[in-house]
C-alpha cells in the first residue's frame, strides 16, 4: 500500500520534472515545477519530515515559484525555440551525460540496497516542528543566525541589482539621458 502510494507520487513528480524541462512556455514550466515541489512535499511526509514538508510548500511552492511566475509576467516569456541551433552537439552531449549520471548513481544505489528501517526501532522522533525547532535553536543556533544574515544580504543585493539606474522613477524608462 505504502509502496503503491510512493510509486504514484514519485511518478507524478518525475513526470512534472520532465514537464519542466520539455515545456515550450516558461509559464508551463513554472506550473510543472509547482507540481514537482508539491509532490516532493508529500514524499517528505512519508519520510517523517512533517516540518520540512510544510516549509517546502511555503518556501518553494508559495515563495519561489510565485517569484518566478512574477518574473515571467514581468519580462514576458515568449522567447525561444526549444532546440539550440548553434550548439546542436550539446544536445547529444547533454543527454549522454544525463544517461551516464543516471546509470552510475542507480548502479551504486541498487548494488547496495538500503532496507527501510523498522519503525519500532527508529530513533528518529520524527521531523515535527517541535523537534526541528528544538534542534535549530539549541545545537544549530549559530548556522541559523548565519542563514539569517545571508538572507538579509541577499535581500539587499537583490534590491540593488533590481533597481533602475540612478535618478529615474520606478519602472519608468529613462527619458533624459545624462549628457
Amino acid at each position: 500500500m505504502a509502496l503503491l502510494f510512493f510509486v504514484l507520487v514519485g511518478a507524478v513528480s518525475l513526470a512534472a520534472a520532465l514537464g519542466v524541462v520539455m515545456s515550450r512556455q516558461p509559464v508551463h514550466s513554472a506550473l510543472f515545477l509547482l507540481t514537482n515541489f508539491a509532490s516532493l512535499a508529500v514524499l517528505y511526509v512519508t519520510l517523517d519530515a512533517q516540518f520540512l514538508a510544510a516549509a517546502q510548500v511555503i518556501v518553494y511552492a508559495g515563495g519561489i515559484v510565485i517569484l518566478i511566475l512574477f518574473v515571467i509576467m514581468l519580462i514576458g516569456g515568449e522567447t525561444n525555440d526549444f532546440s539550440a541551433a548553434q550548439r546542436a552537439w550539446s544536445r547529444v552531449v547533454g543527454i549522454g551525460l544525463g544517461v551516464i549520471l543516471l546509470l552510475t548513481v542507480s548502479y551504486s544505489v541498487l548494488t547496495r540496497m538500503l532496507k527501510a528501517p523498522d519503525d519500532a526501532t527508529s530513533l528518529l522522533q520524527g521531523g515535527t516542528p517541535a523537534a526541528v525547532g528544538n534542534a535549530l535553536f539549541t545545537e544549530y543556533v549559530l548556522p541559523f543566525e548565519l542563514v539569517a544574515i545571508l538572507l538579509l544580504v541577499a535581500l539587499i543585493g537583490a534590491l540593488v541589482l533590481g533597481r533602475q539606474s540612478e535618478g529615474t522613477g520606478e519602472g519608468v524608462p529613462s527619458i533624459e539621458a545624462s549628457d
Binding site: 550539446s90 547533454g94 549520471l101
Partner: peptide, 21 residues
C-alpha cells in the same frame, strides 16, 4: 554559461565513473 555548465557536468560524470566503477 552553458559551456561552463557542460564542462562542470563532464567533470562530475568522470568523477562518478571513477568512484563507482
Amino acid at each position: 554559461v552553458p559551456t561552463y555548465a557542460l564542462s562542470l557536468f563532464v567533470g562530475v560524470a568522470v568523477l562518478l565513473l571513477y568512484l563507482v566503477f
